[in-house]
């Protein structure tokens, strides 16, 4: 490279640029949690889930939204799965039967990906494990 003019300013700018774009690396190195993957506790004391796990991982919020509207707006409280199995539409009654611990199930993942659903504002799940 030939002579660089305005060296100080340019290098400062470039350093800032590099630091910014590499920030995920050093931030995670400094805070040491980069490899953290939340471990989700599921107690299978109920039946199998209303939908496949892969579907629920991606779309549970969509299902909850549909359920919400079914119950509140149309008064329908029964969910019939494709295979004909029936479930009561209820966050606390159905979902939380298996996923008993909100903190270790819902919150862990939500915190990990920076999502704050407003559901839990009203649909309060007690601190202690639900039975």
């Amino acid at each position: 490279m030939k002579k660089i003019y305005d060296k100080g300013k340019t290098l400062t700018g470039l350093i800032i640029f590099v630091v910014l774009v590499s920030s995920p690396t050093w931030y995670n190195l400094v805070f040491g949690k980069g490899n953290y993957v939340p471990d989700l506790k599921v107690e299978k004391n109920g039946k199998e889930c209303v939908k496949r796990t892969s579907y629920m991982k991606k779309n549970h919020m969509e299902l909850l939204k549909v359920w919400r509207d079914e119950v509140v707006r149309t008064g329908n409280r029964t969910y019939v799965r494709e295979d004909g199995e029936k479930f009561e539409i209820s966050l606390s009654g159905t979902c939380l039967k298996c996923h008993t611990n909100k903190q270790e199930f819902c919150d862990r993942c939500h915190r990990y990906v920076g999502v704050t659903p407003y559901c839990f504002g009203c649909h309060n799940i007690p601190r202690e494990t639900r039975k």
Partner: peptide
């Protein structure tokens, strides 16, 4: 929709 947990794991993995 995607499994965002998986995506985050992927994104973090890239930079580490």
């Amino acid at each position: 929709r995607v499994d965002i947990m998986d995506v985050k794991r992927f994104a973090l993995g890239l930079f580490l």
